[in-house]
Design a protein around this nucleic acid. Sequence first.
DNA 1: TAGTGGTCTAGACCACGTA
DNA 2: ACGTGGTCTAGACCACTAG
Lengths: 240, 240
Amino acid sequence: MQAKNDIIAQDLANKIRHKIYEPGDFLPSENQLADLYGTSRETIRKALNALLSLGLIQKIRGKGSIVLNLDRYSFPISGVTSFAELNKELGMHATTKVLTLEDRDNLPKQFIEYFPEEESSSGIHLERLRLINGEAEVLDCDYLLNPPIESIPKQVAQASLYQYFEYELGLDISYATKEITVVEVDERIKELLSLSNNLAVLVASRNYLADTTKFQLTLSYHRPDRFKFVDFARRKKIKL
Amino acid sequence: MQAKNDIIAQDLANKIRHKIYEPGDFLPSENQLADLYGTSRETIRKALNALLSLGLIQKIRGKGSIVLNLDRYSFPISGVTSFAELNKELGMHATTKVLTLEDRDNLPKQFIEYFPEEESSSGIHLERLRLINGEAEVLDCDYLLNPPIESIPKQVAQASLYQYFEYELGLDISYATKEITVVEVDERIKELLSLSNNLAVLVASRNYLADTTKFQLTLSYHRPDRFKFVDFARRKKIKL
DNA sequence: TAGTGGTCTAGACCACGTA
DNA sequence: ACGTGGTCTAGACCACTAG
């Protein structure tokens, strides 16, 4: 059973997506929405907060909730999302070539620099080349920690890891930390990505389950000329 | 008057910062916190949600709220934050050299490719070189839109734009969209940043006030070998 | 003055984890 | 059985924007 506030948030997001509420429009007021959805105002507010943090709306006191411009220029793709999901969402028609899929007792060399804390963890080493229109775009190097991941069927590596984790294994993927840098790569990666020099954009991430178990380390090497990371951010009220 | 839930969130964040609650510890339960702070549980939950989205804690149903590991490896610096704020927060001892500060009737050429929608907007063109230990690190090129920004005193350009906007002008800085790419730069930028080739990391952002007024366009050119962007992200429940 | 969002409350019921 | 977080409610008061 989905929470009522999530259902409402999803419904409003869909209506914004399908231009039932257009950028610049005001949503119905919170009281009206509460009537519309037959719920309390606090529940409506929780739904609106979800849209707020996604950058779909902006709330203006005394006036209402205005739909923001999410088209053309901005296109937040950050978050914890798999390549397969992005591919589907953006209609990229990408293909995946599995280069490596092997069980290991310790972390492959290339990962140690970025994830030294997992040096002696057992897991599954997975390397996949992502191609768009036949051109190499990204090299995804994953290390799936065991536990909690016992094994990866070959066709899953080819398709969607996240769908397998969430729907087959019932894992609750929750959060990630990411680090974007520019690095020098070796000849192998240079050739795989058809780079003109030895620089690539590296996105290194640690991915966690809802119970704080770390389950995935990823090194994503991107072609610098194709890399683009778009983000929506709100000014923090809390100072760390 | 600060909202009670913000005060509580700030207080808990401080206690986590100062290791009163350490990574791996559980916070007091929501009911206990409600008693401690003399407030209702829903207010506590709003405070905890702020810490959740910052990546400071993880809530586990049936168990409690556990403090996450924010040290060593991860260090979320994303969001809508000015260089002066980062400088202070991280103790970087950076200096700023103002290269350009002039009123304009239209957008400078270099901005048009990234912000075509503002081509004929008047504003203030500001270029600042950020140095750390005397070495050029970042070139920040800003265009402050007029309105809402009328003018920038020279010493403000030297110090903190955001402090001036928020405390002097009373502007309510609210959100931003950012785009990170790798670009080829011209000779001028190459020399300013002492680049060995003509590649730089570009962070282009549009910054908005709470009433959705766009007030700042920024092009930040970073040395690739020094650039690092760290982010914390939660898996989205809402599908766009 | 009326309507909007911002905040807070006191209580309720549920689902999950632990013992 | 008990404590935890997850959700929802109906109402209250406030601050702000508008006509």
